[in-house]
Each structure stands twice: as C-alpha cells, then as structure tokens.
C-alpha cells in the first residue's frame, strides 16, 4: 500500500504550488502514471479521498493519465508500445530492448480557483 505515500507526494507538491499562486481551492490535479510502475489507480484514488479533506484539495478530482510501456529494439532500433510482459520487437522479433516509457510518476498540472477571478478593479 505505497499508494498512500505516493499520494502524499502528489498532495504536498500540489498544495505548495497552489498556495504559491494564491489559490483558494484546487479543482483538479492531473498526473501521469506509467504502466510499468507498481501503482494501482484504485488505491491511489482511495488514498486521495482519505488525504484531501481539510486541505485546499478537498473535493477535487485526481485525473490519471496512463502512459503505455514503450521500448526501443536493441537490434533494429524500432520503437514500439507493448504490454507489461512481452517487449519482443514486433519488427524483427528480437526479445531485447531498452525501455523508453512507462515508468513515469509525474504531476502534470493543476486547475485552481484563486478567488480573484472576478473582474479585477483598481489596478
């Protein structure tokens, strides 16, 4: 259940960034999770619901963008997406490849309310 720690990481970074922008509320947190990581979205959403109450992110949505596994063939150089267990090159059949995507754990962006989104006056 390391999703709790990962979720805390998402929340800490998001809250810092949101406060720095003077946010009154976080509406959405968008993250990218590679398919080769051991992160389960269900557990992540569960942790998110447990950790957000009482913070600026209470009631916000955690939007997860899943990044497929991708490798580069060490023989012919082809780049291709593949499932978790078989990274055999579809072009030349070589089983050995270099992973190039699928291990990401990134916070991409936030959608926030700043409270002064009403027309500004007196500037």
């Amino acid at each position: 259940m390391h999703e709790m720690g990962i979720c805390q990481g998402i929340l800490d970074a998001s809250l810092d960034a949101a406060k720095a922008e003077g946010a009154t509320r976080i509406k959405e947190i968008r993250i990218s999770v590679g398919e080769l990581t051991e992160v389960v979205e269900y557990a992540l959403q569960f942790a998110f619901e447990a950790l957000t109450p009482g913070t600026l992110a209470e009631g916000s949505v955690l939007l997860v963008n899943h990044i497929p596994a991708k490798s580069r063939c060490l023989q012919c150089g082809a780049e291709y997406e593949h499932d978790r267990f078989d990274s055999t090159c579809p072009s030349c059949g070589n089983p050995f490849s270099e992973n190039i995507a699928g291990r990401e754990l990134l916070i991409d962006s936030l959608e926030i309310d700043t409270g002064d989104e009403a027309p500004e006056d007196g500037e």
């Binding site: 990481g9 970074a13 998001s14 990134l106 991409d108 962006s109 926030i112 700043t114 989104e117």
Partner: peptide, 14 residues
C-alpha cells in the same frame, strides 16, 4: 486557472 507543474511525484524522496 491552470498551473503547469511537470514535477516528479516522488520529488522529495528523489
């Protein structure tokens, strides 16, 4: 308003 973060989730650990 949107904030672009592009940050590692486990940034502190890393």
């Amino acid at each position: 308003m949107e904030i672009d973060l592009s940050k590692r989730i486990l940034d502190r650990n890393e």
